[in-house]
Design a protein around this nucleic acid. Structure first.
Lengths: 396, 396
DNA sequence: GTGGCTTATTTTCCGCTGTCAATAAAAGAA
DNA sequence: TTCTTTTATTGACAGCGGAAAATAAGCCAC
């Protein structure tokens, strides 16, 4: 019953083509001249690069309807035709599988969820397949093919191999997820760490557009960090990087599940906040929603719990800034539901702990609906599609 | 009286030429085939790249005298002719100006020092000029031209502009040092942050050869860190990065001159150690040499001071490892005179605080004679010489 | 010694990319 | 209408790096 779409490939025959496409993708509609300037190429190269992309339908041309300088030949805006192709992004947590259908511009078209009852890889894979099938069938209404599937999972993930090395939340070890999912769905599959996937989405479609050095910090159950340095996402020599959650900031702090004391996550992670909220208020608190509620109600001591968490996060971010000097830090995560509770502390303690010019780093916050994680997975799939060489052409 | 050597340039006409040269420079004598494999080029490209470099004398060919596999045509080793060109590297501290003369392979040929009595830029510049003149005149015996001058200074240095933005130790602000030194010496000048320069030296000539992700941590008066990520030295968006010294690891720690508490430098920097040694032993201790001596003598409490410092350094390194997952961390610095005193703690606390795969990072130590800082400056000059395009040829 | 074998290096094209300079196109201005 | 101004396109071209084939240079067996 599965549609056996022959894997459609992207006509990125040359570096210039990829570069122009990603430039237009990130920087919205552009004139060819402008695209040339941004990509550091000659206008002639842009014309040549754009042609096959127009022909294949990935780019479209707008007659520039806007008010324009009224002199000279009017510019033709080139933009990515988002409706040309669709992608599916899936985020797997210990409780849920969240899937979104996005277009080529990574705009979410549809979203679906499925609870996880059995964390075994086989069961999760079935859920992924189920959601994928559902979204694909609905996608038919959009009249565009689904060209890739991205899966985001927290933990140690080897994107190149498409394997989950170790995922604590799911208790997986060495699962060749990409291969399995590709067999089940018939789609090209990318598997990546969730924070890295989110970082890719920010780099291409979010607050990281145009920056060569920035960080994404996610606050929630865990505290994670994705880094972009020299314009590329950092993966670390052993596939692990950005473990801001286990940066130890206080030797006298609470014990962390990693065995150390005073990790950022042990102070500001959801579980830590809930535990502490229980201790401080003496009430039954089972999840972070309740903890937030207590703080908002003004229960004595509750706000201090968040203040302390915010301080820890701010110091963690300052550490990142001191070490890498990013241009911007984007704070995001489910934990942002409580953002008003610790925003001030994050900024204050960041400012206090940032050294010298590191304090010039722009600290932003972005709400992160849970679908955003899945969107990150879709972004990874889009990235993979775009950079997949159709035929190992040229220099090889 | 200054020799008006017309600035000799490096014949790096194409990317392949640069790549092959740096490959041979870092990986010692190589056969063309081997060089091709390492650089990811075809053997034919190597032949073509090597020819102009041989002609210009930067590369030389050895008949391979070694025992060889005894089958097939013998390979011809290609190596960099270190004697072809000389460079001068200068490190400026608050007390001294240290200068070295190196060859193209960054081997130190001569070293000179001059005390700093007046920290004003003009006075220091005079010392630099003096040492440069001396070394150049002695260099004549080597029969090779001096092709560049590198200057390393701690603090906020803008290499691209050749300007010292702010140097706390010298109390300089916005000094256009490269321009001044170039005028005085008539040499092409590179000015860079001292730790970054040292990192370049490690990347090309030291323990970082062949690694795309590693860190250099220097222990001494300050605690510094140079990062190489994706094969490039990290400078940060604002020109400052690697401030491991001001990573705060203990909110209850001693006050740091940066205004925070518990910075690594406030615990493990020379000044911090001396201060604490005084407190703990109750003796007069004026510098770190004396502090080391006390610890070696077994004065009660003295060793604990170093243990505590080692622990702080280890935790700082673990933070770096957690955040970007380097393949190796190279610990170096004048402070290594005391290395036996805290080696164990560094490794122990690193191992304890490193999260997951980050612990697989290889932590090495290298002695760092003080001239090594100056050598780093020379490495920066060499790098600049090699990558300086002779004529803005080709694309552009 | 000579022919054969193996491996290293060089040569000889060749495709391909992106630049340059000239040209077309699309308006408004004169 | 014609000129001006700005954007887009075209075609010639230079040059980089690859592939394959040719050549070089030893060693070995006979």
């Amino acid at each position: 019953m599965r549609s056996t779409t022959r894997a459609e490939t992207f006509p990125a025959h040359t570096p210039a083509v990829s570069q122009i496409f990603t430039t237009v993708l990130s920087h919205g509609p552009l004139t060819r001249l402008e695209a040339a300037r941004r990509a550091g190429l000659s206008p002639a190269a842009v014309t040549k690069a754009v042609r096959p992309l127009l022909a294949a339908g990935y780019l479209a041309e707008d007659a520039d309807g806007e008010a324009r300088p009224a002199l000279g030949r009017p510019a033709n805006l080139v933009r990515v035709d988002g409706g040309r192709a669709l992608f599916i992004g899936v985020k797997v947590t210990g409780d849920e599988v969240i899937a979104v259908l996005t277009d080529l511009c990574c705009r979410i078209r549809l979203a679906r969820r499925l609870p996880v009852t059995d964390r075994a890889a086989r069961a999760v894979l079935t859920s992924i397949a189920e959601l994928t099938r559902e979204l694909r069938s609905e996608a038919e209404d959009f009249g565009a093919p689904v060209l890739g599937l991205g899966i985001a999972i927290s933990g140690d993930v080897d994107r190149a191999e498409g394997a989950v090395r170790y995922s604590p939340f799911l208790d997986w070890r060495d699962v060749a997820l990409a291969e399995l999912a590709a067999m089940t769905t018939g789609l090209p599959v990318v598997v990546d760490n969730d924070v890295r996937a989110l970082t890719v989405a920010e780099q291409w479609f979010g607050a990281g557009v145009g920056l060569s050095d920035f960080a994404v910090v996610t606050v929630g159950a865990g505290i994670g960090c994705g880094l972009v340095i020299h314009g590329r996402v950092v993966s670390g020599a052993h596939g692990v990087a950005g473990e801001i959650g286990h940066v130890a900031i206080d030797p006298a702090g609470p014990l962390c599940h990693c065995g150390n004391r005073g990790c950022v996550e042990a102070i500001a992670g959801d579980a830590a906040i809930v535990t502490r909220m229980r201790e401080v208020t003496g009430r039954q608190v089972v999840d972070s929603t309740e903890a937030v509620a207590l703080a908002h109600e003004g229960v004595p001591g509750a706000r201090e719990v968040y203040a302390r968490a915010g301080e820890a996060i701010g110091r963690g971010i300052a550490t990142v800034a001191n070490l890498f000097g990013p241009e911007r830090v984007i704070i995001s995560g489910e934990g942002l539901a409580a953002y008003d509770l610790f925003a001030e502390q994050i900024l204050d303690s960041f400012t206090a702990a940032a050294f010298g010019s590191a304090a010039r780093c722009d600290v932003q916050t972005r709400p992160l609906p849970f679908e955003e994680w899945a969107r990150g997975a879709a972004a990874a799939a889009i990235q993979s599609f775009i950079t997949s060489s159709p035929t190992p052409t040229g220099k090889g």
